[in-house]
């Protein structure tokens, strides 16, 4: 362009703030719901794969395949089933991407539990269920949360591709800016998506600190 158009026209942002806010809310829902669903599904599947080792290789292999599918391609294949410009068309594939990250994370996290800790729990009379909830899962938290961070950040970034099929939250700003050859919406979109990702990532780091108080105690000692 090179016509002296500034990268950001602040007045445009002020005028369009209400609609930007709406896109933001839509974006957050479409990005976080898949991660939440993914976690709810990955926990039992991960537990099963950690318990029955035969399941592990096929599960991880399948998840690798799922993860390599381009998001735009999957959105489009789903359109006949879930409809154009529907939230579900974006949410369903993103749930699978989350699963692809979270299932290995849950399995690796459970495997990180040291054998002597597990044996101590058994020796102290913990049943299988109580051991899982009070010993195994808390120790797995750091690895699971690391996976959760990756899943959340990529989910937030991927939602915007949905704009090409009519439902992409803040991604709409990219289409709008391109069609009008106008930088401001594009810059606003990129900044908000990255800010959202950084914020979510920060909250997860905070959650990790709260959930694993022993890690801090050890570092201080």
């Amino acid at each position: 362009m090179g016509d002296g158009e500034p990268l950001v026209r602040w007045a445009w942002i002020g005028r369009n703030w209400p609609s930007i806010q709406q896109l933001l809310v839509d974006h957050v829902i479409m990005a976080l719901l898949p991660v939440l669903l993914g976690l709810l599904i990955a926990l039992p599947l991960g537990l099963a794969s950690a318990r029955w080792r035969v399941l592990y290789q096929p599960t991880v292999g399948l998840m690798n395949v799922v993860y390599s599918l381009p998001s735009l391609a999957v959105f489009i294949v789903l359109i006949p089933v879930t409809g154009l410009a529907e939230r579900a068309t974006v949410i369903i594939p993103l749930t699978f991407y989350s699963l692809a990250v979270l299932i290995p994370a849950v399995v690796d996290g459970l495997e990180a539990v040291p054998d002597h800790v597990r044996q101590s729990a058994v020796a102290m009379g913990f049943g299988p269920m109580r051991r899982l909830l009070q010993v195994d899962l808390p120790i797995a938290v750091p690895v699971v949360l690391a996976g959760l961070r990756v899943a959340t950040v990529s989910s937030i970034s991927l939602v915007s591709v949905g704009a090409l099929i009519g439902r992409g939250g803040l991604g709409y700003l990219f289409i709008d800016g391109w069609q009008r050859q106008f930088y401001t919406p594009i810059v606003v979109g990129i900044v908000l998506v990255v800010a959202l990702a950084v914020l979510a990532d920060g909250l997860l780091v905070l959650a990790q600190r709260l959930l694993t108080p022993w890690a801090r105690a050890r570092r201080a000692a």
């Binding site: 991604g171 990219f174 800016g177 050859q181 979109g189 990702a197 990532d201």
Partner: peptide, 21 residues
């Protein structure tokens, strides 16, 4: 690299191509 993972592909493509022509 961590920040780069958050960059939305579509936005980056559209912005760079608009800027460069």
């Amino acid at each position: 690299a961590n920040a780069a993972r958050a960059l939305p592909t579509l936005g980056l493509v559209v912005l760079i191509v608009l800027l460069v022509g």
